[in-house]
Nucleic acid binder design. Structure first.
Lengths: 221, 221
DNA sequence: GATATCTAGATTGTCGACAATTTATCAGTT
DNA sequence: AACTGATAAATTGTCGACAATCTAGATATC
C-alpha cells in the first residue's frame, strides 16, 4: 500500500527519507550516535545535507541533538511509548470527531468499502488484521478531518515514531481481530455524523492497542 | 514573567530566536518571503545559519518552504486559526487529564496560590485577565502532565503559532474575566485528581476562547 | 592512588564559493 | 496584442575548508 507519497526533489530529501527509514527499521539502532562525517561518506553527500536531514529528524522527535556535541537516535522506553500513545489518543480522537463533521460522503463510502473488503480476509485467517490495513484506516480518518495542521502533525511527526516503536518492539503487526470490529464501529459513527461518539470510540481503540503493547512489554522482561 | 527560558548557545540559536520573535510580533509580516541572502546580511551571519533557522521555523509551522523556491511566512487565515484551536483543545485537554494524574501536590499548590494572588487584580479592574497570567496557567498545566513529548510539542510547536495569531489579530489580550473562573474550576478538578473532569473543563475553556476570537474576527470584516 | 590540568585529537559550527534550479526579461512569430 | 522560446538574472542547493568546541589521554600534583 502506498501510505502517502513524499517525493524527494532535493538531495537532502532523499537522504532524509533513507536515514529515517534506516532508523525506523532499526538498521541504525536506537540510541546510536549519528556522526556527520561518517554519514556524509556513507551517503556520499556533503555534511550540509546530512545536517539538514538530521535537523528534520529532530523535528520528528526521532533524534535528539545537543549543541557542539552531536545527534543521537532516541532511546525507546516504556514511558516514551505510553507518552506517544497518550498524544495519539488526543489527536486521533479529535481527528475522528472532525472527520464525522467534515469527511465527504464519497470518502466515507470508500473507507466503508475498504473495511467490507477486508472482512473475508479477517474471517479466513481469523486471528489477525494486517498492519497495512490498520495504517490505511487511521490515515484515511486523519485526512478526513480536513485539518491540515493536524494531518501534517500526525503524518510527519507522530507516525514515524510510532512505527519505530512497533517495528523495534516486534509488534508489526497487528493486534487481535477485535481491532477490525472497532474500526467498523468508528466508521459507523462517522457515517452517522456523530462526532462525539466517533471520538470516544477512536480513543478507546487506541487505548486498547496501548494496553496490548504494554502487556507484551511486561512479558518481555 | 519568565515563561520558559531557552538559552542560545550557538549563533544559529540566536538567529532562530530573533527571527521567530520578529515574525510572531509581526515585524516581518505574515506571507512575507524570507530571502536567505537578505537575512544573512541583515543578521550578519552566513547563509548556513539562516537556512538552519528557517528549517526550525518550518518545523514550528511558522514558515512554509518549497524546494528550489524559498520560504514564506505562513498566512493567517480564519480556517488556520480554527484548526489550531482544535489541536489545542485536543492536546491541552489531554494535558489537563494527565496533570490530574501526575502533577505533584507542591506544583498544584503553587498553581493554586498563583490564581489566588491574581484574584484581587481581577476584582479591581474587573474586566480583564492579563495575558501573561493566562499563559503561565496553561504552561504550568502542560508541564504538570509530565508527558515530555507533549510538553515539547506544545512549547516549541503550537505555542508560538498561537501567539502569532493573537498578536497579529490584535487579541493580546485577554479575554473577559470569566476566564479566571474557568481556570479556578480546572485547578479544582486537578486538585481532586479528577482527570476526566479536568479534561472536559479545559476543552470547554479553549472552546470559549476560540469562540471569542471567532466573534472578533467576524466583527473585523 | 586520586584528583586536577594541560595537550592532542576528533567533532560540530560557520563561512564563502560554485552548481543547479527557478524566475524575469525580451525577442520573435502568429 | 497574445503567445512561445531563448537568454540573463537572481535564488536556492551543495560543497570543501576553516574556526570553535568538546572529549580523551597523558602528565603533574597532592
Amino acid at each position: 500500500m502506498v501510505f502517502f507519497q513524499e517525493q524527494a526533489v532535493t538531495s537532502s530529501d532523499k537522504t532524509y527519507f533513507q536515514l529515517r527509514e534506516e532508523i525506523v527499521e532499526g538498521l541504525i539502532p536506537a540510541g546510536a550516535k549519528l556522526s556527520e562525517v561518517e554519514l556524509s561518506t556513507k551517503f556520499e553527500v556533503s555534511r550540509a545535507v546530512i545536517r539538514e536531514a538530521i535537523n528534520r529528524l529532530e523535528a520528528c522527535n526521532i533524534v535528539e541533538r545537543k549543541a557542539n556535541v552531536g545527534a543521537r537516535v532516541v532511546t525507546l522506553t516504556e514511558d516514551g511509548l505510553l507518552e506517544l500513545y497518550q498524544i495519539r489518543e488526543a489527536l486521533e480522537g479529535m481527528a475522528a470527531r472532525l472527520a464525522a463533521q467534515n469527511m465527504p460522503e464519497a470518502e466515507i463510502y470508500e473507507l466503508s468499502s475498504l473495511l467490507e473488503g477486508q472482512q473475508d480476509e479477517v474471517r479466513q485467517n481469523h486471528t489477525y488484521y494486517q498492519e497495512a490495513g490498520d495504517l490505511d484506516f487511521h490515515y484515511r480518518i486523519i485526512v478526513g478531518s480536513k485539518n491540515q495542521q493536524l494531518i501534517t502533525m500526525l503524518s510527519n511527526g507522530i507516525y514515524h515514531l510510532a512505527r519505530m516503536y512497533r517495528v523495534q518492539l516486534g509488534m508489526t503487526g497487528p493486534r487481535v481481530t477485535t481491532a477490525y470490529d472497532e474500526h467498523k464501529h468508528i466508521v459507523r459513527a462517522i457515517s452517522n455524523r456523530d462526532g462525539e461518539l466517533a471520538e470516544i470510540l477512536m480513543r478507546r481503540h487506541i487505548q486498547y492497542s496501548k494496553n496490548n503493547i504494554a502487556v507484551k512489554l511486561t512479558k518481555m522482561k
